[in-house]
Design a protein around this nucleic acid. Structure first.
Length: 939
DNA sequence: ACTCTGCTGAGAGGA
């Protein structure tokens, strides 16, 4: 019997006397997950290979589950509302009520849908505090770790049948950049990897003789029962094999290594295995290190995995999950580790001291000011909330029905498997045909979970999408007969946010923090003053140059950016030339001999800014752009993944593989480095230092996200518009306000607003200017103010119906009453497009914007393909000659999408020459801001 | 209630 439900009330733990002696027990009041009348119950409760009956009859009844003996420990951290699962439970009748209890074969799992990484459990078992520190500060770039990774990759290659020397050469080459940063040479590293790999190869040969076919290389495994995910190095005869490059001359494997193997055993058990043996391969154990006790020559240590170990691992996982769900911070007292043997003892004590946290290791260093500790707590909580949202996404992999996931754009289903082809190096190419044209957020270059039907219960593996049209081409380590692809959630961004916040507070310099916390006022070099400015080039003097002579605000912005001692904030409303201003500022900085980081949240924004910079550098005096090297010109490097970077910026992309010395020179010598903020948090980028960081679209970044970039530089410049859409976050919390917005409020004197726009006809910009920019946004030139469709070649405004001749038009459509779609509006918009076409407009000059995705697809059914149709959110950052907005609201304007007025600002400021608003006036006039908009559009 | 981009993954080791 398999019981699953939600803790309904406080849990009581007590000790009773039984015929076997004293026993602990916990009585857990449980609201059962199953609901007899509801079809979803079987999905929630049913398991892939559960041979026992599942109890669905209980409905939403509250019952009691008794957890005996050691499982009572897990009850200690149960809070009402938490989810619990008990396997192999027995049913008991007690005073006429049905109750349940654990048996000798039971596992109790707390919050089973919270998927915990195997390495997280391993760290937690070593010390819960260590687990926390790892999360907080990440693992820095160091040689033992890189070498360990290399040996693992070679091991995987060997299992897949790749030649040893070929594998070593290829794997070392791939890590050229990292090795270069560590000051290593390819030859030395290859030699060391070879030594480790030889031990593996020898051992592998023995195994092959007897068990030729029972090997499998690493594969991602997920357990929905135990709430664990991980990737075993190898599986032999159904049992996990773990590779360790560290030394271990003891007879027994290290305990934490056994725990890791036990986690994989649990994963394999869920996938149909029955595991009682684990193998650990310590590759440094060569003949020279003959074990004195045992005379052991082999690097392999086998051990039996008892029931006790597996249950211990699940209890540890429970404690970890409960702490994560509660958002608590471990002290170290939860575990039994001895602090004096710990590598992280000093770090642990400093972190505890500075954040004033309770810690088993004790505290050194003085606590941060209270406001900084509060800040840490607030943001720690917010980031962890985001992490829990990511975990909810994992749970959907098995909780959500395939069709539902496809409808949510989270999966491509019903693919027809075509073939698997072995690739060089032992990997596989998989092909499948799409049977429907349904779109999804899955794109080429993405990392997805490829499965033969079910991402968790079936056979599945992580795969890269090489091509995506009517045929999907994937590459993967395992030859999965793929019929389904799922988006695989990633905690990477939340991890990096946490580290960025930690670094800003615990490693950031005091002056920087004074600025961030409003304790000091940003300073600037004084224009024309006799003060000396020191920089690499050794030039002197303040900033009194004119950078841009036809736009005073832009010139002031560049002056502030260049002369900022701490920071400058450039507020750039739509069409005001933010990107140009940034490019001009970077050029000036580079001319002063400074090293500059250019960053933004999205790859698209980084590439746009970089493009403007490259143009700017070509115009610059005596500057010639170079993609790298140390020649005469300005060297520019783009860091990021191939799939993220726009094709025309590919020549500037920093290649990671190759000769270590060359790779590192390319990065270190670059005067300008461009990367997304997420990439700024990578191990490679964290090794870099800059004079200035410029962050574009900063109003769309969370505070910790912004920190990831500015942590790397002495000064920073943020550019953005907080009157447009805020950062995208999953949970409602402190992350929704950008650092940009907060600093604009806190240090208005450090800000400049660009007040001349180069995009919209005066009539179009009037409302946005008045409503969002205090009327200060104005056309930059008479040409802009007076631009109309007549300026376009082949367009005759007179050919349009009179109503559409005005730059702003309102089209009254009563609407069909649908909540997220409106086919009447869509049909009317199709007519409008025809009218524009008849007047000579190209379809590519027209854009249609709607608030809801559902309406976007409705519109796509009505309008021609070459008209761009998208949501407001996705239109941010671009513009069109003609913009038609479909408001998709009938009767009332209720709903969160309409509440954020910044969204209308974005929508209304996309067009250059004509704007058409289509909607139901009754609905729009129900809100004061929309009512004013209506009034403006109709006059 | 709705909008939605980043990241290769997960794990790599030091006495």
């Amino acid at each position: 019997m398999y019981v699953r439900g939600t803790v309904a009330d406080e849990v009581e733990v007590r000790t009773v006397s039984t015929s076997y002696g004293e026993s602990d027990l916990a009585e857990v009041p449980l609201r059962m997950a199953g609901d007899g009348d509801n079809g979803t119950a079987s999905q929630t409760v049913a398991r892939p290979r559960d041979d026992t009956e599942t109890d669905l009859a209980a409905g939403h009844e509250t019952t009691t589950v008794t957890l005996w003996n050691k499982w009572a420990e897990s009850a200690d951290y149960l809070e009402p509302g938490m989810e619990v699962l008990v396997t192999n439970a027995k049913k008991e009748e007690y005073q006429g009520e049905t109750q349940y209890a654990t048996t000798g074969d039971s596992y109790v799992v707390v919050e089973p849908s919270f998927l915990v990484n195997v390495t997280a459990i391993r760290n937690w078992v070593e010390c819960p505090r260590l687990y926390y520190l790892n999360k907080l500060s990440g693992v820095p770039l160091n040689y033992p770790v890189v070498k360990g990774t290399l040996v693992h990759e070679v091991f995987g290659d060997l299992l897949r049948g790749r030649d040893l020397e070929e594998s070593i050469a290829a794997r070392v080459d791939e890590r050229g950049l990292e090795l270069g940063l560590l000051g290593e040479t390819s030859e030395a590293v290859a030699e060391e990897v070879r030594e480790n790999a030889t031990a593996i190869e020898g051992w592998l040969e023995q195994g092959r003789l007897t068990e030729e076919d029972s090997w499998r290389s690493e594969q991602l495994l997920i357990s929905e029962t135990f709430g664990i995910r991980g990737r075993a190095d190898a599986i032999r005869r159904g049992a996990p094999v773990e590779l360790k490059t560290g030394k271990n001359l003891k007879k027994e494997p290290r305990f934490k290594d056994k725990v890791q193997a036990a986690c994989y055993a649990l994963l394999l058990e869920e996938h149909g295995g029955d595991v009682d043996l684990g193998t650990l391969l310590y590759t440094k154990n060569s003949a020279l290190d003959r074990n004195e006790e045992t005379g052991d020559l082999t690097p392999a240590k086998e051990f039996t995995m008892g029931d006790g170990l597996l249950k211990f691992v699940v209890r540890q996982r429970n404690e970890l999950a409960a702490m994560e769900i509660a958002g608590d911070i471990p002290t170290g007292y939860e575990g039994s580790a001895k602090c004096e043997y710990c590598f992280e003892q000093d770090t642990c004590m400093v972190v505890s001291g500075r954040l004033d946290q309770e810690s088993k290791a004790g505290q050194i260093a003085t606590p941060l000011p209270e406001e900084e500790r509060d800040y840490f707590q607030r943001f720690y909580r917010a980031i962890e909330e985001e992490r829990r949202e990511v975990h909810r996404e994992y749970a959907k992999l098995w909780e959500q029905d395939a069709q539902e996931r496809a409808d949510d754009d989270r999966a491509l289903i019903d693919l027809e498997f075509i073939e698997k082809r072995p690739l060089e190096g032992g990997r596989w190419e998989l092909r499948a045909r799409r049977t429907s044209s349904a779109n999804s957020k899955i794109r080429e270059g993405d990392f997805v979970l490829a499965s033969d039907g079910h991402p968790v219960r079936g056979s599945s593996e992580l795969a890269t999408i090489e091509r995506l049209d009517d045929v999907v081409v994937l590459t993967a380590d395992e030859p999965v007969e793929v019929t389904r692809l799922d988006v695989y959630p990633s905690e990477l961004t939340t991890d990096r946010l946490l580290v960025a916040m930690h670094d800003a507070l615990l490693k950031g310099d005091e002056r920087r923090k004074d600025i961030l916390f409003g304790r000091a006022t940003p300073e600037f070099e004084e224009s024309g003053a006799s003060e000396t400015h020191r920089n690499r080039a050794g030039e002197t003097g303040g900033v009194d140059e004119t950078f841009i002579d036809n736009n005073a605000a832009q010139n002031e912005a560049v002056t502030k950016a260049v002369g900022a001692r701490d920071c400058a904030l450039i507020h750039g409303p739509p069409g005001t030339g933010k990107t140009y201003t940034i490019a001009r500022a970077i050029r000036a900085m580079v001319e002063r001999g400074e090293r500059v980081l250019l960053s933004a949240f999205t790859n698209r924004a980084v590439d746009n800014a970089l493009e403007a910079l490259l143009e700017q550098l070509e115009d610059g005096v005596g500057s010639q752009t170079q993609r790298s090297g140390d020649g005469e010109g300005v060297s520019v490097v783009r860091v990021g993944s191939e799939s993220g970077i726009r094709e025309d910026m590919e020549p500037y992309r920093l290649e990671r593989s190759g000769d270590p010395e060359d790779r590192v020179a390319e990065l270190q010598n670059a005067q300008v480095v461009a990367a997304t903020t997420a990439t700024c948090g990578s191990r490679v980028m964290k090794e870099q230092a800059f004079d200035v960081a410029l962050v574009d679209e900063a109003a769309q970044l969370t505070e910790p996200g912004t920190c990831a970039a500015i942590n790397l530089a002495e000064r920073f410049v943020l550019v953005g518009d907080h009157e447009q859409l805020p950062p995208v976050v999953r949970a409602e919390n402190d992350l929704t306000e950008s650092l940009f917005e907060r600093l604009i409020d806190c240090h208005p004197e450090a800000g400049v607003m660009l007040d001349r726009q180069y995009r919209m006809n005066q009539r179009i910009q009037a409302f946005a200017s008045r409503e969002f920019y205090d009327g200060e946004l104005r056309p930059a030139e008479p040409e802009v103010a007076g631009r109309t469709l007549n300026d376009l070649e082949g367009v005759a405004r007179d050919a349009l119906p009179p109503a559409l001749q005005d730059p702003v038009t309102f089209v009254d459509v009563e609407g069909d009453g649908g909540q997220y779609t409106d086919s009447e509006e869509a049909a009317r918009i199709a007519d409008l497009i025809e009218q524009y076409e008849a007047a000579g407009l190209e379809r590519s000059e027209i854009g249609v914007i709607a608030p809801f995705r559902a309406q976007v697809s409705e519109l796509s059914r009505h309008v021609p393909d070459d008209v761009t149709v998208d949501t407001v959110d996705r239109f941010q950052g671009s513009s069109q000659e003609v913009i038609i907005i479909s408001f998709t609201a009938t009767g009332t304007l209720e709903g969160p999408i309409f509440e954020d007025y910044r969204r209308i600002n974005v929508a209304l400021t996309r067009p250059k020459r004509a704007l058409v608003l289509v909607g139901d006036p009754a609905a729009l006039s129900s809100d004061p801001v929309y009512a004013r908009m209506l009034e403006w559009a109709r006059t």
